[in-house]
Amino acid sequence: MHSDVMSSSGAGQYYWCLSHHRVETDADKCPAVNRLGPYGSAAEAERALERVEERNAAWDAEDERWNGDQS
């Protein structure tokens, strides 16, 4: 058996803390209400707010198309 094999049960997860504006891990994460994630890497967590903005823009554009608000 290999003792260095990580399980897929949450090991190595990263979060973006909305309170502290930093990447956090399972060892030091803030309450769920204050964080985004989990993400598979620190780099993904660092991009969390950028991804939220991209998705919101896409959803806003879709709402405009749905509502017929485009000029």
Rank of each mutant, 00 (worst) to 15 (best):
residue 1 M to Q: 05
residue 1 M to Y: 02
residue 3 S to V: 13
residue 4 D to M: 11
residue 5 V to P: 01
residue 6 M to H: 07
residue 6 M to Q: 12
residue 7 S to K: 09
residue 7 S to M: 10
residue 8 S to W: 12
residue 9 S to N: 10
residue 9 S to C: 11
residue 10 G to F: 00
residue 10 G to Q: 00
residue 10 G to V: 02
residue 10 G to L: 02
residue 11 A to L: 05
residue 13 Q to L: 06
residue 15 Y to L: 04
residue 16 W to R: 04
residue 17 C to P: 03
residue 17 C to N: 08
residue 19 S to N: 10
residue 20 H to N: 14
residue 21 H to R: 07
residue 21 H to Q: 12
residue 21 H to K: 08
residue 22 R to T: 09
residue 22 R to I: 08
residue 23 V to F: 03
residue 24 E to A: 06
residue 24 E to T: 08
residue 24 E to P: 07
residue 25 T to N: 00
residue 25 T to E: 02
residue 26 D to M: 07
residue 26 D to F: 00
residue 28 D to L: 03
residue 28 D to R: 01
residue 28 D to G: 00
residue 30 C to F: 05
residue 31 P to V: 11
residue 32 A to N: 13
residue 33 V to K: 15
residue 33 V to W: 11
residue 33 V to G: 11
residue 33 V to T: 15
residue 34 N to R: 14
residue 34 N to T: 15
residue 36 L to F: 07
residue 36 L to V: 12
residue 37 G to D: 05
residue 38 P to Y: 03
residue 38 P to S: 11
residue 39 Y to S: 09
residue 39 Y to P: 08
residue 40 G to D: 03
residue 41 S to H: 02
residue 42 A to F: 02
residue 42 A to W: 02
residue 42 A to T: 08
residue 43 A to D: 08
residue 45 A to S: 05
residue 45 A to K: 02
residue 47 R to E: 12
residue 47 R to K: 14
residue 48 A to E: 01
residue 48 A to I: 06
residue 49 L to E: 04
residue 49 L to V: 05
residue 49 L to W: 00
residue 49 L to N: 01
residue 50 E to K: 10
residue 50 E to F: 05
residue 51 R to M: 10
residue 51 R to F: 08
residue 51 R to D: 12
residue 53 E to D: 12
residue 53 E to S: 12
residue 55 R to F: 06
residue 57 A to R: 15
residue 57 A to S: 14
residue 58 A to E: 11
residue 59 W to E: 15
residue 59 W to N: 14
residue 59 W to Q: 14
residue 60 D to C: 14
residue 60 D to Y: 09
residue 61 A to Y: 04
residue 61 A to T: 08
residue 61 A to G: 09
residue 62 E to V: 13
residue 63 D to V: 15
residue 65 R to S: 09
residue 65 R to D: 07
residue 67 N to I: 13
residue 67 N to D: 13
residue 68 G to F: 04
residue 69 D to C: 13
residue 69 D to I: 14
residue 70 Q to R: 14
residue 70 Q to N: 12
residue 70 Q to C: 11
residue 71 S to I: 15
